[in-house]
Amino acid sequence: MFKKTILVTTLAASLGACATLQQTTPGVLGVAPAPVTFDGHVAGQATDYVFVLVPDANPATPGLSMRAGETIRLIMPAAFKRNEQVEVKTDANTNMVFTKGWPQAGVKLAGQYAIGYDAQSNAMTVKALTDIGTDGANAPGIKVIHLRGRTFLNPGPGDYPVTLQHVKADGKLKAAWAGSIKVLEDAPMARLAPTNFHLPPGTNSDFQKAAPGASMPHYLGLLLWGEAGSSLNHVGIAPRDLNRFPRYTGGLLVQDVNGDKVLDPTVDKV
């Protein structure tokens, strides 16, 4: 009986240790340049990144939920300096915003969460004022955090570790993520990013469904930049041309340079 008691006690202690380890082992935090700027990931420029908590953007996959009183802490590397010219507003999403996993789909801030900044840890904070679920108007929940608004300034080029914490109302750690922020020396020659600016607020052009041969209900939107952040307009997707462009096995991005509203890779800019 005595030996069994020791065995059960040891097993319980081991399981308890495993449970604690699972709760505090950081998940993978995806980090990418925000899709609405061309230089938010360039050295010396204003910081503009998205931090991905739930990588599956499918609206059928639930995101993160928060209980009232819980806090999300985005702990920025010390090399990222606060831009003191920009105020951190608690009741506006100009500095940071929760999104549902697709462009221009913010989780409503008003009445649900408040933004803050902790100078000691160089962390942006988001405190839930009420329960934020994964259904109803908030569906499918929090999947991405967008840090924006010239709130920070990027350091020199390199890779910088970043952590994010989900803290309970009692101060105990509920979950954590860890990732890396890549800062480039110069902006790329060109950049393409998805957008839903052309659609009504909250509309998602991703994950559309249609019968074979039928048109999708919403157009796909793309933001295109050229050198020095110049916008590339009148661009569409033309069929592939493997003879002239064997590297590109999908459609070709073609700019209608002559204005005839016909995408012709032989005369227009590919």
Rank of each mutant, 00 (worst) to 15 (best):
G44W: 08
V88N: 07
V88P: 00
A68R: 00
T90Q: 13
G69L: 07
T90V: 15
D48G: 10
V28I: 06
A43Q: 06
V86K: 13
W102L: 08
Y113G: 05
T61D: 11
E70K: 00
T71C: 01
T90E: 12
L74E: 07
V36E: 15
V97I: 08
M96V: 14
L64E: 08
G111I: 05
H41I: 10
L109K: 09
P26V: 12
T37G: 11
Q23V: 12
D56T: 00
P35T: 04
L109Q: 14
I72V: 14
V52A: 05
N58Q: 04
Y117S: 03
A60C: 01
V107K: 08
M96F: 15
G101I: 06
Y49T: 06
A60R: 09
A46Y: 07
A60N: 09
C18G: 08
V97N: 11
L109W: 11
F80T: 00
A57D: 13
V36Y: 15
S65C: 01
V36H: 15
L21Y: 15
K108H: 13
T90C: 14
K100H: 08
V97E: 01
Q45E: 13
P33F: 03
T47N: 13
I75M: 14
N58S: 12
C18E: 03
P77V: 10
I72E: 03
E84D: 14
T47F: 13
V88A: 07
A78K: 08
S65P: 13
G27M: 09
A110T: 08
G106A: 11
T71G: 02
A79N: 05
A68W: 02
F98S: 02
Y117I: 06
E70M: 00
Q22C: 15
G30D: 02
V88Y: 06
L53A: 07
A68E: 09
A92D: 14
Q85N: 12
A43N: 06
L64W: 03
V52Y: 12
G40I: 03
F80H: 05
P55E: 01
P77T: 04
F98M: 04
Q85G: 12
A57F: 04
R82K: 11
P26A: 08
P33S: 02
P33K: 00
D91S: 10
K100R: 07
T94M: 07
V28Q: 11
D56Q: 05
P26Q: 12
M96R: 09
F98I: 01
G106M: 10
A105V: 07
N83A: 09
F38H: 10
Q23F: 08
S65H: 11
F98L: 04
G30M: 05
T61M: 08
A57Y: 03
K89T: 10
Y113L: 01
G69P: 00
K100G: 07
L74Q: 08
W102E: 03
A57W: 06
I115H: 07
V50K: 12
P55G: 03
G101P: 00
T94R: 15
N58T: 04
A92Y: 14
T24K: 14
P103G: 09
R67T: 07
R73G: 02
T25R: 01
A43Y: 10
A34K: 06
C18I: 13
Q85P: 12
K89V: 13
G63P: 10
A114I: 05
G111T: 04
D91F: 06
D48K: 09
T99F: 03
P35A: 11
T37A: 06
R67F: 11
V52P: 00
Q104N: 13
G63D: 05
A19L: 15
